[in-house]
Design a protein around this nucleic acid. Structure first.
Lengths: 224, 224
DNA sequence: ACATGTGAAGGCCTTCACAGCA
DNA sequence: TGCTGTGAAGGCCTTCACATGT
């Protein structure tokens, strides 16, 4: 009934957002044959401070050895478990434009527990009617395929005007987690988790910093 | 010499990250012919609370009218100015795989002050040798084109193993802001701003929440 | 009257300092 | 001795309550 206390304890949002990065860094170490890492080494590889890393890991449990470090393989397994990557996550992507096709083929979307289980578009013949091994289905098939393939995560890569109706269709079909790349704020029924990603925003933030540097007389001390 | 006090005052990171969203919402209102909005209306359209919006805007200055609201066009101009979008930002994208081509054609990357000024790949014939109007150039041309076209922002969409050397080349050519989509942590000289975006991370965070809901006996109160 | 703008309070997250353990 | 794990401190951000101005 009860898992480890540390597992059941709530993990902060900020920590969850960094765990995938730790996992990626650990995979790099494993591929290089490294068996053990210190928090300092792993933190550097993940782009954070070692205290940050240790505090984050402390939310999962005590998987390190004092005076020594962390065993690479073991820590990777524990983080995967915490993130829920030990189970399989079928994903559906709606909107087979440039971005949709790119995501369907993107390794970060097709590894680590995730696999593209269905693709949808108004025009199912777009781009040859398939991406890799997966056929593109018409929207009329959305409900049936999502149910039969037990898809719990949906990705929206349609133009903004279509995004809300796609969101509604996904929610009605039983999807509970939606990743929205369309530039629109979606409303979904309670119990459906929507997360928006705006690639343009990142550019804007960069431009803002760039402009700030320009407006300074001395472009010195821009570190961190 | 000195701009408005509010403009010169430092704007919090979190606020800067939300300004593009406000701008998008304002554009929607403008297209619908709306002349004036309250903080409540605009906040809803942007997916935040009205107090959040007002606090954010207070960092830029006082652009609203008490008892009335904000004039759509005027506020849009002020936010654009604060973000530095009133000037032109030439952008270079390196790595013309699926993601690179998608970004080159993505409207969020080609509007609001930004325009794709150069594309690069090891194999400049990939995808027909061009995306839209822009030719794909070989990496040997990177330094020359970045300098002659005064490109200050670079986007990396190569595989992870190539990312660091692309970053080095960009920095050497004088680029000061880099958006990195490759799953690797890059080191750049001081004065060069690197921002990493991992599309896979978003999926991981979603899966984590999904799993948390699954593990609860009562899937109630998942709101917010 | 009504909606903006803002000091103050509260909460979350990061960083520090050091206790704990091999 | 060396590195992990963690309570405490500090900082940033969000939210509240209300003062402000039309």
């Amino acid at each position: 009934m009860s898992a480890d206390a540390a597992t059941r304890r709530e993990i902060p949002d900020a920590t969850v957002a960094r765990l995938p990065e730790y996992l990626r860094a650990l995979t790099d170490f494993a591929e290089r044959g490294t068996k053990s890492v210190s928090s300092e080494e792993l933190a550097t590889a993940a782009g954070v401070r070692s205290t940050q890393l240790r505090k984050d890991l402390s939310h999962l449990g005590s998987y390190g050895v004092r005076g020594v470090g962390y065993e690479v393989d073991h820590l990777a397994v524990e983080i995967s478990r915490a993130l829920g990557l030990s189970q399989d996550w079928p994903v559906a992507i709606v909107g087979m434009g440039n971005l949709g096709r790119a995501l369907a083929a993107y390794s970060g979307f097709t590894s680590g527990g995730f696999h593209v289980a269905a693709l949808f578009d108004d025009d199912p013949t777009v781009g040859g009617g398939r991406v890799g091994d997966v056929l593109i289905s018409p929207m009329s098939e959305l409900r049936r395929l999502i149910r039969s393939r037990r898809i719990a995560i949906g990705v929206i890569t349609t133009p903004a005007p279509s995004a809300q109706q796609v969101c509604d269709a996904m929610a009605a079909a039983g999807i509970r987690s939606i990743l929205n790349f369309a530039p629109a704020v979606l409303t979904a029924p309670s119990g459906v988790n929507v997360r928006r990603v705006d690639l343009g925003t990142e550019l804007h933030v960069l431009a803002f910093r760039e402009m700030q540097v320009d407006s300074l007389d001395q472009p010195v001390g821009v570190a961190r």
